[in-house]
Structures are given as structure tokens and as C-alpha cells.
């Protein structure tokens, strides 16, 4: 009992915290990952709107 009791106690005291930390870490990772995409998309859009087709040029074969 001592050991089982100890294990349950240990889970409550440390295991729960470990799970919580994992969830937080996962959320940060996901936020960072999607944030990276969002930023890239915005920068791409801005660059496109700044470009204006030039005059006086030709294609070279």
C-alpha cells in the first residue's frame, strides 16, 4: 500500500504537472508553427502589391 499509495501520490504531485507542461509546450510549438505561416503569407501578399509591371523590356530566348 505504501508503494501504491506513494505512486498515486507521486502521480498527483508530479505526473499531472508533467502532462500540463507537455500541453503548454505543444501549444507553444503549434502557435509558433502556424504563426510562421501567417507571417510568411502576409509578407508575400505585400511584396506582390508593390510590384508593378515595368515598361520597355523584352524576353530573351
Amino acid at each position: 500500500m505504501e508503494s501504491a499509495g506513494s505512486a498515486a501520490l507521486l502521480f498527483r504531485e508530479y505526473g499531472g504537472n508533467i502532462m500540463m507542461r507537455r500541453r503548454i509546450f505543444l501549444r507553444i510549438l503549434l502557435a509558433g508553427f502556424f504563426g510562421l505561416f501567417a507571417k510568411t503569407t502576409r509578407a508575400e501578399k505585400k511584396a506582390d502589391t508593390n510590384l508593378t509591371m515595368a515598361m520597355f523590356w523584352k524576353k530573351v530566348d
Partner: peptide, 16 residues
């Protein structure tokens, strides 16, 4: 398909 262009705006005539 070739994607090279030449600017004809100034005498530098950059081929890009």
C-alpha cells in the same frame, strides 16, 4: 521556356 528578360530602358541593357 526561357525566363530571361532584357531591360530596354537605359543603355546598360541589363539581361536578367
Amino acid at each position: 521556356m526561357a525566363k530571361t528578360v532584357q531591360c530596354e530602358l537605359c543603355p546598360n541593357g541589363c539581361v536578367l
